[in-house]
Write a protein that binds this DNA or RNA. Structure first.
Length: 854
RNA sequence: GCCGAAGUGGCGGAAUUGGUAGACGCGCUGGAUUCAAAAUCCAGUUCUGGCAACAGAGUGCGGGUUCGAUUCCCGCCUUCGGUACCA
């Protein structure tokens, strides 16, 4: 199916569902990130990013033209543009460079730029896979091998904004946990970068370390297996081992490499580096735990003070030199920055803290390195080898220089294609459309497309002015709406979408295109309604070329590692959600038809093997896990049938009633009857059968108390997004009003207004039944009045040593002394005081009494 | 592994600043109504012992602070989200 068709169907479907549930949206402001009217501006923003660099002096984005002019007049000398590498060239050199060489240099500074990055390449499928589609080195679909492969791709230089993304978190009304996740993700650390010369070579290894104090304990070095120097420094007799290892690591996902649960691995290059402080020769190793893209892609390993280095050193029997004496800090971890320096020449006797500072000075004095702030945050890869995305609004000339399209040629529309599979030779689908790719004058178009986060990084700005053809939004609209007041989103967006949006927004702010520095003022995290994911166990090793699935009950405990888990569409599964859910012959047939690549697979169950076409009594057990409802897991449950059966009011209130908004939980309709009953009960306050039962009778004091208790609870709970307790407050009020036989229109009318945002359909109907002409949503929302809740007396719990032993009622104005006296004299309390001395009596007014005895 | 969150009856959950643990709802048990069922209504329902009054235990596990801890501190366990190509 064409993605445009399925996307339209999905949008239509969502719209129907949202209407069905009774959500109030201003549909005039609807935007579609895949429509050319919208993505014209996504492309436009991309070009702006391409045309700018980040100036670290003024801390804002500046036109790349300015930088180019600087290079023309000064060369690299004195430039203040953000970049990862250092470049040094004179204006004369610049002027001798070809246009292509100059363009390549500018690429190192542009906020949108091209560089070689690694992708998960699956040769068998001829395509690049998302990390999620790769499970333990093989593709989730088909179980084919996947390797890391370098590819020239677009990236966004988000790292230029790292510091600002970090510091402006302070001013946001976001949860602390969310801010922490973002700040950890950005991962600012202050350290030193320094060079270790390679023995018998003119090469140097650059490392970044936050622990320069431990340099005398640096007994070996580790390079990322992809490090540029690997080939040059590897000795002849280690060549084969190194090549094998590099190949092995290319099949490992980054996540696997970071996990320490798995066995540590590495290989010796044969080369030695010189420790610049003590002149010792230290072996240079490769290790998969060092990543190419973090820091410099190389570390000085200090096994005495780093856990991973320590494990590595022990495994490969490398030298360990203790350099920090932690004897005064019992229980301190290996990596804790405490203790006194030992075995460290001029650092001996210093505290770790002082030693770090001293080393910064030494390194700079010796001229072998300098202080450096490093960020864990990496630039965002912006290319996707897929059809369904925004085309890049650029062409490449014959030399490969990037030329952005002029604004009047935007949008560059996605051309029609009838086959969305990757093109031959691992190229993106768009490469099939040669007429589109080849532009006039030998120019060619980019065949990759933009990622999903392109359109989603700024859509909220388009809501402010969705039809504007002159700009992504008018200045007037942006000034009026400012930022997003409240953003409700899940924590799954914590470091992805929310970080990218903030980055784009800051860039637009720098250009004076938006009035605010941050896009989302307040943010709350709703939990996810989860689903049960059903997996089939697939043997990683094929049997004579045949895929073999094994029923979960036949897989031994501890053997799970030999299997890949393949998700199955939950509709095929019998007893879905139960612990022993399974596929019968029909279900297996559906699975095989749905996943044709497994059409020839064998499915082993306790009652024999099943293959396509077989009938009979098979029970192939699945693995059930609670996880997010997602297209990827084929476990999405549809709200429509609930609305059909119980009505939208009931669906809405039940979903709220399930629990706190920020908590995740599996979807389960058990209990929805309670909410359904409540709505009928609420209706029953107004009607006795078909007869209206309300009257003009003036409300009793007790009824007003019930009403205002409810108003108070609901008003405060709405403010703190505690909707589940609002629903229970309505239930309590309804039960109480019924018990009080309340028929007062005055009270009931207020209840209707109060409940309207929760159950809009029934509220509107009752509102009209009460004789009102206008909509309930135009009525004034009830206001809590304290006077209805004033109590004459208060019931106190009386505790002995913190354990409740009696209840007693006291006048609301009773003094502490009176309460103490009366409490002690209660017969239920007296028996606990026999043979005991009263040590203390604590009275918390209007709360409780605690008598301490001993 | 790392970062973040959560863990309370048979189940979903409540307890807003350290002050009555289990509100509200589901389920279950008994009863009313009914030829019967559904629906509805009434009563009970944390666990253990007890006819009961009552007593003991109890908020993932182990410690600590406090007159008092679901709430604060330290150490663990389990589950969920993220871990850079889902966004």
């Amino acid at each position: 199916m064409h993605p445009a068709v399925s996307t339209d169907e999905n949008i239509k479907r969502y719209r129907e569902q949202l209407d069905n549930i009774g959500f109030c949206y201003d549909w005039d402001r609807e935007v579609k990130t895949c429509s050319p009217e919208y993505y014209k501006w996504t492309q436009w923003i991309f070009i702006q990013l391409f045309e700018h660099y980040y100036d670290v002096d003024t801390n804002q984005a500046k036109p790349i033209e300015d930088l180019k002019n600087h290079f023309i007049t000064n060369g690299s000398e004195g430039h203040t543009a953000y970049t990862e590498e250092e470049f040094s060239f004179s204006k004369e050199e610049w002027s001798t460079w070809s246009e292509k060489e100059q363009a390549d240099m500018l690429m190192n500074f542009r906020l949108a730029y091209r560089k070689t990055t690694y992708v998960n390449w699956c040769e068998a499928l001829g395509t690049v896979l998302a990390n999620d589609e790769v499970k333990e080195g093989v593709s989730e679909r088909g179980g084919h091998p996947v390797e890391r492969k370098p590819m020239l791709q677009w990236s966004l230089r988000i790292t230029a904004y790292a510091d600002r993304l970090l510091t402006s978190l302070d001013h946001l009304d976001w949860s602390d946990s969310m801010k922490k996740m973002q700040s950890n993700w950005i991962g600012k650390s202050t350290g030193a970068k320094l060079f270790f010369p390679v023995k018998d070579s003119d090469q140097q290894i650059e490392v970044f370390t936050t622990r320069p104090d431990t340099i005398f304990g640096a007994t070996y070095m580790v390079l990322a297996p992809e490090h540029d120097l690997v080939e040059q420094i590897t000795t002849a007799d280690q060549k084969e081992a190194v090549e094998d290892y590099v190949k092995y690591v290319s099949t490992r996902s980054e996540r696997d490499r970071m996990s320490e649960a798995k066995e540590i691995s590495g290989v010796f290059t044969g080369a030695y580096a010189i420790n610049p402080f003590n002149g010792e020769e230290v072996p240079v190793w490769l290790g998969e735990y060092v990543l190419k893209d973090y820091g410099t892609g190389a570390i000085m390993a200090v096994p005495s003070d780093d856990d991973r280095d320590n494990r590595f050193a022990k495994k490969y029997k490398l030298k360990i030199v203790e350099v920090v004496d932690k004897s005064e800090f019992e229980g301190a971890g290996r990596q804790e920055k405490v203790g006194k320096m030992i075995n460290s020449d001029f650092l001996n006797g210093l505290s770790v803290k002082d030693a770090i500072q001293k080393m910064f000075d030494e390194i700079e004095a010796k001229g072998i390195g300098q202080r450096k702030v490093n960020f864990r945050l990496r630039d965002a890869i912006y290319s996707r080898q897929r059809y369904w995305g925004e085309p890049f609004p650029v062409v490449y000339n014959e030399e490969g220089i990037t030329i952005p399209l002029p604004e009047q040629e935007l949008p560059l529309e996605l051309p029609e294609l009838n086959d969305f599979q990757p093109a031959a030779g691992g190229k993106s689908p768009l490469a099939r459309n040669e007429a589109w790719v080849s532009e006039k004058d030998g120019f060619i178009r980019e065949t990759d497309t933009m990622p999903g986060f392109a359109g989603s990084s700024w859509y909220f700005l388009r809501y402010m002015d969705p039809r504007n053809e002159e700009a992504f939004a008018s200045k007037e609209a942006l000034d009026y709406w400012q930022e997003v007041d409240l953003y409700v989103g899940g924590t799954e967006h914590a470091v992805g979408h929310l970080m990218y949006s903030r980055f784009w927004h800051k860039f637009l702010y720098d250009k004076g295109l938006v009035p605010t520095n941050e896009p989302f003022k307040k943010l709350i995290n709703q939990g996810m309604i989860q689903g049960v994911i059903e997996f089939l166990y697939l043997k990683k090793e094929k049997d004579n070329g045949q895929s073999v699935f094994v029923s979960a009950d036949l897989v031994q405990e501890g053997e799970e590692d030999n299997y890949a888990k393949i998700p199955v569409f939950v509709d095929f599964v019998s007893d879905y959600g139960a612990a022993n859910s399974y596929l019968n012959a029909t279900g297996l047939g559906k699975f095989a038809a749905w996943r044709p690549e497994y059409g020839t697979a064998r499915f082993e169950t306790s009652s024999g093997s099943w293959t396509v076409g077989q009938e009979g009594d098979f029970r192939f057990e699945t693995v059930s896990e609670v996880g997010k409802m997602s297209k990827r897991y084929f476990n999405v449950v549809n709200p429509d049938d609930i609305v059909e059966r119980y009505g939208a009011d009931c669906f809405r209130m039940y979903e709220m009633f399930l629990g706190p908004i920020e908590q995740s939980k599996p979807w389960d309709t058990k209990g929805i009857d309670g909410v359904s009953k409540f709505i009928r009960k609420f209706w029953g306050l107004f009607f006795d059968g078909d007869q209206k039962s309300f009257s003009d009778a003036s409300p009793e004091k007790g009824q007003m108390k019930i009403l205002h208790t409810c108003i108070k609870k609901v008003s405060t709970d709405i403010e703190r997004f505690s909707f589940n307790t609002c629903v229970s407050a309505f239930m309590v009020a309804t039960n109480d009003l019924k018990k009080a036989k309340c028929t007062s229109k005055e009270v009931l009318e207020q209840m209707v207004i109060l409940i309207a945002p929760f159950a809009p359909f029934v509220a509107e109907e009752l509102w009209h039944q009460l004789g009102n002409e206008s909509s309930v949503f135009d009525a004034k929302y009830p206001v809590f009045e304290e006077k209805y809740l004033v109590e004459d007396s208060i019931t106190y719990p009386i505790s002995i040593n913190g354990k409740k032993r009696a209840m007693a009622e006291f006048d609301a104005n009773a003094s502490k002394e009176d309460i103490e006296k009366a409490a002690v004299e209660l017969p239920e309390i007296q028996k606990w005081l026999e043979d005991k001395t009263i040590r203390k009596i604590i009275v918390v007014p209007k709360r409780m009494v605690n008598i301490v005895v001993g």
